[in-house]
Design a protein around this nucleic acid. Structure first.
Lengths: 181, 181
DNA sequence: AGTAAGCTTGTTAGATGATAACATCAAATA
DNA sequence: TATTTGATGTTATCATCTAACAAGCTTACT
């Protein structure tokens, strides 16, 4: 699920347990088509397929997972194939790379290349993308005081999403059930 | 340069051009000794040496650079040697890993395992570590609204530090001097 | 001291992540 | 059509990180 939320700062919400994810994918692809057409970028079949695969997963996707899938589909696929497609998609603002986990997620609001702010749930692995102006503003203010000019922000917050907190509530001191291991 | 700054939110400042960095290193090692003694952790010769090497560089250090140095010193050193030491130092709160560049920096204020907020200068490569409560608070507020429980923050801001801005001032549209490559 | 337990390091091997360099092919343009 | 540019194929390699087991040290207890 990604669009038409009242809260404009949430570009991509955590994936709810039940939803027709195919619609997310097709919506994302349509947006991508439009965005590329508008800016004169070439969303080739390969690039489009990679984008589709990235969106196809609820959770961030690793480059080599994509590579494995492409390898099955195309009889041949080497790392550069996938990395080049991902590079293009990143520059086009269609996917984001999560540095803290070396993985990629579809961008909920393609268009301008914007800084991503991500909440990553360690329970279900899904990711929410925010665009909190307040956050960027606070960072800019801190940087300003040191005379630092901000170019790129990497903000990735790991934690537990609301759904996972409900299904695996925390006890007072350490979880009891899944404590082993 | 790392300590005794009036601004308590700056845990580690950008390295000034001229300073006796050996003092930074020895200060950091003393702090580490004290912290480990206090918390019953074993700062073995190997771990201490790795910490020293990390601090020895003004800029974030790559694991394989450490490995190369250790290899020269010890006649043998394999990746696990260095990664294990780094893991220990991270958990002890003595170094931070910068996910956006796969590198490590000494922590300016060891002790509790705190979230790092980093300003990374792409000019000189040096890093400042902040602890802006306002920033964490803003993040917590955004997370709160989504019912998200924050566990770990990865905040890495890339840009240009004050010194580098002075020495390579930006022109109106694109730098002229160092534009080629 | 003896010795068992647990932590630390050595060692080998390999998984995973990413890029360089050059060849080939397709699309856009002159 | 010829030329140029961009996209993809291909091979090779580098960089980052981890698993698994062996060996050595410390610690704590008898």
């Amino acid at each position: 699920m990604t669009t038409s939320k009242p809260d404009a700062t949430v570009l991509r919400t955590f994936a709810p347990e039940r939803h027709d994810h195919r619609r997310c994918v097709s919506t994302a692809l349509s947006k991508a088509d439009a965005a590329c057409t508008a800016s004169g970028l070439r969303l080739t079949p390969l690039r489009r397929r990679v984008l589709e695969l990235v969106w196809g997963s609820h959770t961030p996707v690793k480059a080599y997972d994509l590579l494995a899938i492409l390898g099955r589909e195309r009889h041949q696929a080497a790392p550069p194939t996938v990395y080049r497609a991902l590079d293009f998609l990143q520059e086009a603002g269609l996917v984001h790379r999560l540095a803290s986990m070396n993985a990629f997620v579809g961008c909920g609001e393609p268009g301008g290349t914007h800084a991503g702010q991500f909440l990553i749930c360690s329970g279900c692995g899904t990711v929410a993308e925010l665009a909190e102006p307040g956050l960027s503003k606070t960072i800019a203010a801190s940087a300003e005081r040191l005379g630092f000019e901000v170019v790129r922000e990497t903000i990735e917050i790991e934690g537990v999403c609301a759904d996972c907190r409900r299904s695996k509530p925390r006890t007072g001191r350490g979880a009891a059930s899944t404590a082993a291991k």
